[in-house]
Each structure stands twice: as structure tokens, then as C-alpha cells.
Simulated scan of single mutants.
Amino acid sequence: MVTTRRGRRPAGGGVSLTFEVIAETLRERIRSGGLKPGDALPTQAAVIREFGASSLTVQKAMALLKQEGWAVSRPGKGAFVAHHAHPDDADGPDGPEATAPAGGTMAHVEALERALADAVEQIADLRARVEALETGSSERGH
């Protein structure tokens, strides 16, 4: 068996990584109508329970869905199904025009702004955690 660095597939390997399995499962729920545009995606905790995955794995799956245009983030509210048909969803009866992202460039700019706001929020949260750990360590060490 070929071993590789964690998270990497061996050459020619057809096995999906856990975050890809999670993302595909959520894509299928969107395609099938189980999750509709504007619906909240399952919380990180719910996905962790359902798939037995780590929080980092779930975050990677959600980031992939956002990057591909399947989901959008609303800071402080969570992740939601995007309000347009996805370009990969070619089953639509109206052809490619019906699956183009709503709003074109502006929608992409808004999605990037939301992603940036999410990243800033995550950085602030991580800084707070580090400060709390450092404060706790210095109090216990002295």
C-alpha cells in the first residue's frame, strides 16, 4: 500500500476524502430539493455527528461548497444554500442560461466579501483562543 501525506490521494487513487464525501452529500441534498435556496445548511455540530468527522474536515467541506457556489455565508448566522441553480447542475430544463449565477460579477464580489468576513471572524476567534490559552498557561505556570 502506498502511503502519502495526510489528506493527499495516492496517484490514481479513486477514493474520496471525507470532506469531499460530506460536500457531495450536501450537493446531492441541494440537487434533490431536500435543501432549497435560502435554507440553512446543517450546523457544523450536526455534520460532525452525522459523519463522525473532525471540525476541520467539516470546515473544509463547507469551504468547498462556498468556493463552488453551492453555499453562501452570512456572518453570525451560518451557511445557507445559494439562491441560484449551480452550473454543475445541468439537469435544468432551461439550459445553461438558467444555471448561470444570479448577479454575475456582483454576486461573485459579494460572495468573496462574505468569505473574507468569515475569515476575519475565524482569525479573531483563533486569536482569542490563543490569548486565553496563553493567559491560562501563565497563570498556572506562576
Rank of each mutant, 00 (worst) to 15 (best):
T3G: 08
T4L: 15
T4V: 09
R6N: 13
P10E: 11
A11G: 08
G13I: 09
G14Y: 06
T18M: 14
E24I: 03
L26K: 00
R27S: 00
E28I: 13
R29K: 07
I30T: 01
R31K: 07
R31Q: 03
G33E: 07
G34E: 09
G34P: 00
L35Q: 00
K36M: 05
G38R: 01
D39S: 04
Q44N: 03
A46S: 10
V47K: 00
I48D: 02
R49V: 06
F51L: 05
S54N: 05
L56R: 10
V58G: 00
K60Y: 05
M62D: 00
A63C: 05
K66F: 02
Q67W: 06
G69S: 04
G69V: 02
P75D: 12
F80E: 09
V81D: 01
A85N: 01
D89K: 00
G95D: 08
G95K: 07
G95P: 04
E97M: 15
A98V: 13
A98Q: 14
A100V: 11
P101Q: 12
A102C: 15
A102N: 09
G104M: 07
T105W: 15
A107K: 02
E110R: 09
E110I: 15
A111K: 03
E113L: 15
L116K: 06
L116F: 12
L116D: 11
A119I: 14
V120M: 14
Q122C: 08
I123A: 10
R129K: 13
G136A: 09
R140C: 10
G141E: 12
